[in-house]
Amino acid sequence: MATIKDIADKLGIAVSTVSKGLNGANDISEKTRQLVLDTAVEMGYASKKVQKPGKRKVCILVETMEYDNIDQFGYEIVVGFKLSAARHHCDVTVIPTNLNMQTQEKYDSYMLKHGYSGSFLLGFALHDNYINQLCKTSVPTVLLDNYIPNKHVGYVGTDGYNGIDLAVKHLYEYGHKNIALLNGSKNSLVTNERYQAFTQSMEHYSLKVNPNLIANGYYVPECAKDYVGSFIKNGATAIVCASDLIASGVIAELNRLGKCVPLDMSVIGFDDLPIAQHLTPTLTTIRQDRVAIGKSAFMMLDELIGGVSISKLLLKPELIIRNSTGTCP
């Protein structure tokens, strides 16, 4: 493992300058500090304070995911992560990120600069800069619903194949044959998996997959208005939604079009957010235990920091039957 002296020798600068760059001193230039950090990452340097047991700190980097209150998807995930971290006497910092931040400073350099032992990434898309950099990182990192083939990076989430199959089976047992899928946004691993799970489940129950009944929206209610009318015209009797927020928009749009849920159209969501119990009708959905996801993410990160390479950890989903699904009309 590289030392501070190794970095100094490589750059041809004083050991004290390298130390200042690694420890955030303000009496060297930002350019020199960044050069020191980038070289340290390149040489595989890890500070003693990061390695020291009982003194670790980790971060949760959040891009496009809301987490401020209990009604939002990320809230319980963050809570679960913090609960597990507290039991291990580990400090957690939640850091909102954006594309500008990701282009200004490399992921490994950022982690080294701030003394983080590892991180949990929430709400990142496959094309994001930090996700692309994870192929070569040596920083222990956990992703939600994303996979990178690197021994230092783990994947935690809910088994989407099982979840979508529960939804399709439930509708099939109610006699539905023309089932639509309003999926999430493109450039997402979980979106791709749910599409594949939907087509496999439909084929398993000998149901025809109609391309006109499959669409990619976004994880917001407003996307429903662009697709529900088309689903109705193409004979759908049930709609599987990639999230409860999408499902809430679908129910609102069906009401606007004069359709009754579930008499005219059954609707099923995914996540079991608190909103699911307060919709009219209450929403049948696939439950993700988000507190358990957060706890599992920290458990995985702690093992990665300890040198145990874990590839994937998937939790079992649960079908929650409420009033938005019923017998096919």
Rank of each mutant, 00 (worst) to 15 (best):
D272T: 02
M65L: 15
V92P: 08
V50T: 12
E303Q: 15
D108A: 06
T3A: 12
F231D: 05
T158M: 11
S201A: 15
C241W: 08
S324A: 13
T32A: 14
A197Y: 06
T158H: 01
C59K: 01
L143N: 00
Q51H: 07
P317F: 12
I214Y: 12
S311W: 02
F298Y: 15
G229D: 04
D128W: 00
I246D: 05
S109T: 08
L301F: 08
M43Q: 13
S29F: 09
Y219A: 12
V15Q: 11
V228H: 11
T103H: 09
E318N: 01
L171Y: 02
N216S: 10
L245I: 02
V50E: 07
A224G: 06
S19A: 14
T280R: 09
L213S: 02
S206Q: 13
Y75R: 07
N98A: 07
E253L: 11
T284G: 13
K169N: 09
D68A: 14
K177Y: 08
L181E: 00
V190R: 00
G307S: 12
P262A: 09
V94C: 11
A292G: 00
A85C: 10
Y205H: 08
A180Y: 03
H152P: 00
D272R: 02
A242M: 06
E318S: 02
S109V: 08
G44A: 10
K225H: 11
K316V: 09
N187C: 12
G24Q: 04
P140S: 06
I293Y: 00
D71V: 03
H127C: 05
I28H: 03
G326W: 09
L301P: 04
I13T: 05
L319P: 02
G12T: 01
V156W: 03
T32K: 13
V291L: 14
L35A: 14
I239D: 03
D289R: 05
T137M: 12
E222Y: 04
E105A: 06
V62Y: 07
T237C: 10
A238F: 07
M101N: 06
E63G: 01
A180D: 04
K208F: 07
L273P: 07
Y172N: 12
F270W: 12
G163Q: 14
I7Y: 01
N26A: 07
T103S: 12
R87P: 00
M1W: 05
G80I: 09
G307N: 10
C59I: 10
H114K: 14
A252P: 00
A86G: 01
L189W: 04
S206C: 10
N178G: 01
D71E: 14
D38Q: 13
E222N: 11
H176Y: 09
S201Q: 03
Y45G: 05
Q51M: 15
L126Y: 01
L99C: 05
V18A: 04
L301T: 04
V15T: 11
L143K: 00
V190W: 01
H278L: 10
V50Y: 00
A247W: 11
F73G: 03
N192W: 03
K5R: 15
M101A: 06
C59L: 14
K82E: 15
L61S: 05
L35W: 02
D145H: 10
K208N: 13
L83G: 00
L319F: 03
T327Y: 09
G54P: 10
D272P: 02
Y67N: 11
I320G: 04
T93Q: 14
G306Q: 04
